[in-house]
Amino acid sequence: MTPVRPLSLVTGASAGIGAAFARALAARGHDLVLTARRVDRLESLAGELRQQHACKVTALAADLADPAAPGTLCDELAQRGLAVDWLINNAGYGVPGTFVANDWRTHADFLQVLLTAPVELAWRLLPGMRERGYGRIVNVASLAGHVPGTAGHTLYAPAKAFLIKFSQGLALESHERGVHVCALCPGFTYSEFHDVTGTRMLMNKLPGFMWQSAEAVVTEGIDAVERGEIVHVTGRVNRMIKTMFKLLPDRVAMNLSARQSKRYRAQDAA
């Protein structure tokens, strides 16, 4: 049974797709728990949403690179009596450079944020959703999870491919209990992602038709999970790209991906 005011937990909510999810869900009558590392941005967004939508917003700073963070976050929710109905696993980033150009701590933190944290949050929050007979989990994956891996950002595509497969299995286990799970797979999205990775100038060379706004991505994602769609690639262009790579022989797809990726990748440090 759908709650009168669902409670949504959004990770990585301080900017980009996460902030867009927060605004869209607040506009749909949800109360919110927002989490990210930058508490000042969270508080600013929380104030905006309270004023515009008269919703309850809890801002909790958390660094999901800390293995203890998901458990601590869920314990805090339980202590406050907050039962999460929607989980938006959005927190993520890219690590530029080749695999050996970065130290292991950098890779370990990345895997914790993009793989372990979303899986643990789902594991901790799913039982309550199943018990109440209602829940939505959106794992923000990527078009990158559907195409061949490329040099540079070596772990990014594999991590997103994992989220897609994880979402598929979890959806099949949960749909009969009123819980919808969706892997949301955007392509190039206007956000801070490429500023953080230092590739903004290169990305600006891409034609405009390849980009979507964070708001458009989120609208598609909310509609998809409500429909019960398990994997959703946003935007017509991205869906065409996914289909093309699926139909191409592996060797041809790998060569094409390698050639294109060189045009938009920063020079490797090592």
Rank of each mutant, 00 (worst) to 15 (best):
P6L: 06
S8Y: 00
A20L: 03
A22G: 07
A22P: 02
R23D: 00
A24I: 01
A26I: 09
A27T: 03
G29W: 02
D31S: 13
D31R: 10
V33Q: 00
R37N: 06
R38K: 10
D40K: 07
L42Y: 01
L45Y: 02
Q51Y: 10
Q51H: 12
C55K: 04
C55V: 14
C55A: 13
V57N: 00
D63G: 06
P67G: 06
P67D: 08
A68M: 12
A69T: 03
P70A: 10
L73M: 09
C74G: 06
Q79V: 07
G81I: 11
V84Y: 00
V84M: 04
L87S: 03
N89Y: 05
N89F: 05
N90P: 03
Y93E: 07
P96G: 09
T98Q: 14
D103C: 14
A108D: 12
F110V: 05
Q112N: 10
V113F: 01
L114F: 05
L114V: 12
R124L: 12
L125I: 03
R132C: 08
R136K: 11
A141Q: 04
S142T: 05
G145R: 01
P148I: 10
T154I: 09
L155E: 05
Y156C: 05
Y156G: 00
P158L: 10
K160F: 01
L172S: 12
L172F: 12
V179N: 04
P186M: 02
Y190Q: 14
Y190C: 12
G198N: 12
G198W: 07
L206G: 08
G208M: 13
F209T: 06
M210S: 13
E215Y: 04
V218P: 00
I222K: 00
D223S: 15
A224L: 07
V225Y: 01
T234G: 09
N238M: 08
F245N: 08
N255R: 15
N255H: 15
L256M: 15
L256W: 07
L256G: 11
R259D: 15
A266I: 14
A266G: 15
